[in-house]
Amino acid sequence: MKDQSDMTTLYLAQSGQKFLIQKVKIKGDLKRRLLDLGFVPGSVVEVLKASPLGDPVSYRVAGTVIALRKEESQLLFGEVIQR
């Protein structure tokens, strides 16, 4: 696994890109919820589409589509996997 400084956040990933989650830098209840939804280290998330007003953004994760606000996606670290 990479050093944290090389990682970017899910928020910065572009629509259509796939993103490998490596670190979930959140505490407490929200962390639990995100984990349960499949935002776990080792998961690949695909960025789908922003809402009409720009935020939230929808992601495909664990075979489902989940929308996150930028406050959340900024705390999910990892790397964009090129394809």
Partner: peptide
């Protein structure tokens, strides 16, 4: 059945 991965969790 259409999103087994999360259901299985």
């Amino acid at each position: 059945a259409t999103s087994l991965e999360r259901s299985l969790n």
